[in-house]
Write a protein that binds this DNA or RNA. Sequence first.
DNA 1: AAATTATTAAACCAGGTGGTTGACTTTTTC
DNA 2: GAAAAAGTCAACCACCTGGTTTAATAATTT
Lengths: 122, 122
Amino acid sequence: MNHMVSDRAPNLDRVFHALAHPARRSILRRLAAGELNLSELAQPLRMTFPAASKHVRVLERARLVRRRVSGRQHRCRLHAAPLQEAVLWTEQFRQQWEGRFQTLDALLEDMKSETRGPSRRR
Amino acid sequence: MNHMVSDRAPNLDRVFHALAHPARRSILRRLAAGELNLSELAQPLRMTFPAASKHVRVLERARLVRRRVSGRQHRCRLHAAPLQEAVLWTEQFRQQWEGRFQTLDALLEDMKSETRGPSRRR
DNA sequence: AAATTATTAAACCAGGTGGTTGACTTTTTC
DNA sequence: GAAAAAGTCAACCACCTGGTTTAATAATTT
């Protein structure tokens, strides 16, 4: 536990990159509701089928989507786990960012103490 | 409040894209600790100065970093607000994803009720 | 067996990415 | 005023992206 998420993390690269396109976010959103095959995924996207297929493959590279071939259909299923690493990074970042104000607060607190006399804290 | 984050969101594209490279995550992390100028940011990255400078510009496009020119130095400061939108998207997505199990749970609950007699819930 | 459906593959394109090098401008320091 | 420092810009490179079209393959339906 409390395992630092390194900035050097190829999985993280792939997950964030996967999230960086509206078509892929749309695919993920719809997969959150349940399994869908490629043509179902492609249909509402305003692009050709091969383009949509490529987007799905980007999601697979990020391990966010898994595919199970069933006859001529490729049924896609969401796999949310890798997203957790991304959330973790953001979360750690936020803590670090907010920690900055905490130390600033502590400093101000110390300064106030200084004016009332030397601090007794160790 | 409760404003749906659309999948069609150019800001979101830029923020996620900004996060999708280790050098840029490293820059953000270090900026979380406080203001730094370009050469300070570039120094620990194993690439030439112009390359690092380009990464900072990607972060600026995502509005995650702001620059204030002070003499010959360009002092960079983190601006975390746009990250909030990304967190929000992920959060909504997670809720949708977990909601799926909730409805499954509700269904199973209903099925159990059915065996004990018709449900009285509306 | 033929037609339809679901999907991949390959070739192509414009434009972006991530990196380099070399030349240049501006500000600070000596 | 010359040298050093902080950055930019432009050109170049290899490769990736996001899209298209056309052709091919595989499974299902008729």
